[in-house]
C-alpha cells in the first residue's frame, strides 16, 4: 500500500499572554492509503490540535508534513455546522463553490452521494427539518463533495445521542470504505475507535506524544457494530483503557 501522508516530529506550542503550552510534541505517523486510524488519549491532550494542523487550520511550531502530490484533505467537525439559510444540497455544494469547482459534473456527483445515502428526498429542504443523525451525514457528504483523499474526523459523533451515534458511525464507516477514503479520527470513545479503525494511536497526557500504536486485528471484521462482538474487542478495550492515564 502507498504511503500518502507522512508526519514527522510534529510539535505545537500555544501562546497565551500568561504562559506557553506545549500541546503536541514529537508526533510522527505515516498514513497508508485506505487506512482508518483513530487517535485516542486523555481529554485536553491535543488530539484535535493534530487534526487542525493536518487540515491547515494552524501552523505547526516544528516538524514536517509530507503529502503526496495531489492529495487532498477534508475536515469534518464535531458539530455539523450546516448553514440554516442554505438547502441541504446547497450546504453540500459549499466546499465546491469556495474552491470554484462547481461544475455540473461535480454537482451530479453530490446529488449521487445524497441519493446513495438516503438524503435525496431532503435535497431541497433546510437543515432544521433533519434529525441529528441525518445532519451529520449531510456534513460528511459536504466534506466528501470536494473529493478529498484523506478525511480528518474530529469527534464527529460526540454531539449525537448514543443510538444515533452507533447508527451514524456505522454509516460513516460504510461510506468511507465504499468511497475508498483514508481517515484519521479523533475520539474519546474507545469502543468507537476500536470498532472502526485499522489502527489506534494512544496519546499520553499533555504534551501529547505517542504512547502506543495498536494494530487492530479482529476475526471476521465487518461493520463497526458487529466488530464490537468479536472476541478481541474487549481485550483491546482493556489494554487501551490501561494505557490512558485517566485522572478523574
Amino acid at each position: 500500500m502507498r504511503n500518502i501522508l507522512k508526519i514527522e516530529n510534529l510539535k505545537k506550542i500555544y501562546h497565551t499572554p500568561r504562559e506557553e503550552i506545549l500541546a503536541v510534541d514529537n508526533f510522527s505517523y505515516t498514513l497508508q492509503e485506505g487506512e482508518f486510524v483513530s487517535i485516542v488519549g486523555p481529554s485536553g491532550c491535543g488530539k484535535s490540535t493534530i487534526l487542525s494542523i493536518l487540515s491547515d487550520l494552524m501552523k505547526p511550531s516544528d516538524g514536517t508534513i509530507e503529502k503526496e502530490k495531489d492529495i487532498k484533505v477534508g475536515y469534518m467537525l464535531q458539530q455539523d455546522c450546516l448553514f440554516d439559510f442554505r438547502t441541504i444540497l446547497d450546504n453540500c455544494l459549499l466546499g465546491l463553490e469556495i474552491e470554484h469547482e462547481l461544475t455540473e459534473e461535480n454537482k451530479q456527483y453530490v446529488i449521487h452521494l445524497l441519493e446513495t445515502y438516503g438524503l435525496k428526498d431532503f435535497m431541497y429542504q433546510y437543515p432544521e427539518n433533519l434529525s441529528g443523525g441525518m445532519r451529520q451525514r449531510v456534513a460528511l457528504i459536504r466534506t466528501l463533495a470536494t473529493k478529498p483523499d484523506i478525511l480528518l474526523l474530529d469527534e464527529p459523533f460526540s454531539a449525537l445521542d448514543y443510538q444515533t451515534r452507533l447508527a451514524v458511525s456505522d454509516d460513516v464507516y460504510q461510506i468511507l470504505k465504499k468511497e475508498k477514503k483514508s481517515a484519521i479520527m479523533v475520539t474519546h470513545d474507545l469502543a468507537e475507535a476500536i470498532s472502526m479503525s485499522d489502527k489506534v494511536i494512544v496519546l499520553s497526557a499533555r504534551p501529547s506524544c505517542i504512547k502506543k500504536i495498536y494494530d487492530i486485528e479482529l476475526t471476521n471484521r465487518s461493520n463497526p457494530i458487529e466488530n464490537r462482538k468479536t472476541k478481541e474487542f474487549p481485550i483491546y478495550y482493556d489494554l487501551i483503557w490501561k494505557d490512558i492515564d485517566f485522572h478523574v
Binding site: 491547515d56 487550520l57 475536515y75 467537525l77 458539530q79 455546522c81 459549499l94 469556495i98 474552491e99
Partner: peptide, 13 residues
C-alpha cells in the same frame, strides 16, 4: 459560530 468559521477555513475560503 466559530465552528462555522473553522469550517470555512478548512475549505480554504
Amino acid at each position: 459560530d466559530p465552528n462555522k468559521l473553522k469550517l470555512m477555513k478548512s475549505f480554504h475560503a
